[in-house]
Design a binder for these strands. Structure first.
Lengths: 193, 193
DNA sequence: GTCTATAGCGTGATAGAC
DNA sequence: GTCTATCACGCTATAGAC
């Protein structure tokens, strides 16, 4: 019942799930990567579902705490979104496999975790939307459909892990700057009349 | 060996795969939805993999043909991107489940299809990037990292199916207009100095 | 073209020796 | 804490009657 061993199992599982997907990875695969037999895993974890839950739920709570904190700061809408973008980039680069698991495999969570995950995700989207609406009310943002902007922006942030390492020279700072410019300032040189 | 029955199977499979994921849907589930037994499916299709391939590959070829055609038009970069955005929105709304399968389940394609799919996807990304670079060369777009812009824009277009039906009143035209504005023109009222 | 029956295999998980 | 052995089950796919 070594706790380090447990962490090691969960970490290795996240990497395998990232590569092949939750259902395609067997307990035998996972054990083999760690140099033990599948049955030995059960001294450290109680089920495959528990591993997924351990990977996903910690991260989901982390995102929730962060947006909660940002939302109550006394900042403008743009500053808040910059902080959220930065946090997504940091998490994507530091915890790639866990983040990819969260986005792709949450449907396989046990019912309780799944319910909690969806609550957290819906709350995150609602807080993000509120920040956008704040910006539009206060004149900092153009008055557009705030839903379309929120959903499409969150889509970019949630799928960074697909491409952040596809080209050389994508540093954290460069990605953050690029995303802020593209998402917030636009790319067209002179708005078409 | 009725061809309509085959189409019916493939269509139903796409819907189930969208809901529960390719691996979680069994041939028994699929057969039951159609009111027959699992073994009867094999009079119309030869394997579960073949169903996935039929769903995914047709759509992948369709996207390729479209960007190929747009790329060789004598349009500006912005007009080309607007055409691509419109095509993504149309396809997302008209073929939601097939599109979601393509994005989420392509890893389970048989090796040949998988190889072909990745070739098509890489070619699509390269063509999109070339359109962006064209715009920057010709002064139509701001000079930014074209990779970051391409990847993040494609992320939005590829994941539309996640949210396009979350709110009432998201019509095709409204989504297209919203995306063009958000992705190309930006949301910030007055660029921060 | 659908059925029943079943082959053949891989899965998550457990029991009990060491 | 890891092992061997195994259970109980579900999976894709096939054979052959109707």
């Amino acid at each position: 019942m070594n706790a380090n061993r447990r962490e090691q199992i969960i970490h290795m599982a996240a990497n395998l799930f990232l590569d092949r997907g939750y259902t395609a990875v067997t307990m035998r695969d996972l054990a083999q990567e760690l140099g033990i037999k599948a049955s030995s895993l059960y001294n450290h974890i109680s089920s495959k579902e528990e591993i997924l839950s351990a990977i996903v739920m910690g991260l989901a709570e982390e995102f929730s705490r962060h947006i909660e904190q940002v939302a109550q700061e006394d900042w403008g809408s743009v500053a808040k979104m910059e902080a959220l973008i930065a946090m997504h980039v940091d998490t994507t680069l530091d915890k790639t496999s866990a983040l990819a698991c969260m986005n792709r495999e949450w449907k396989f969570l046990d019912p309780d975790s799944r319910k909690r995950y969806l609550e957290l995700r819906n709350a995150y989207e609602a807080q993000f939307l509120a920040i956008v609406q704040q910006g539009m009310r206060q004149g900092e943002l153009k008055r557009r459909d705030p839903h379309i902007f929120s959903y499409s922006t969150l889509s970019v942030l949630r799928t960074l892990y697909h491409w952040y390492n596809k080209e050389e020279g994508f540093s954290k700072e460069k990605i953050k700057e690029g995303l802020v410019q593209n998402l917030l300032l636009g790319i067209v040189e002179r708005p078409l009349l």
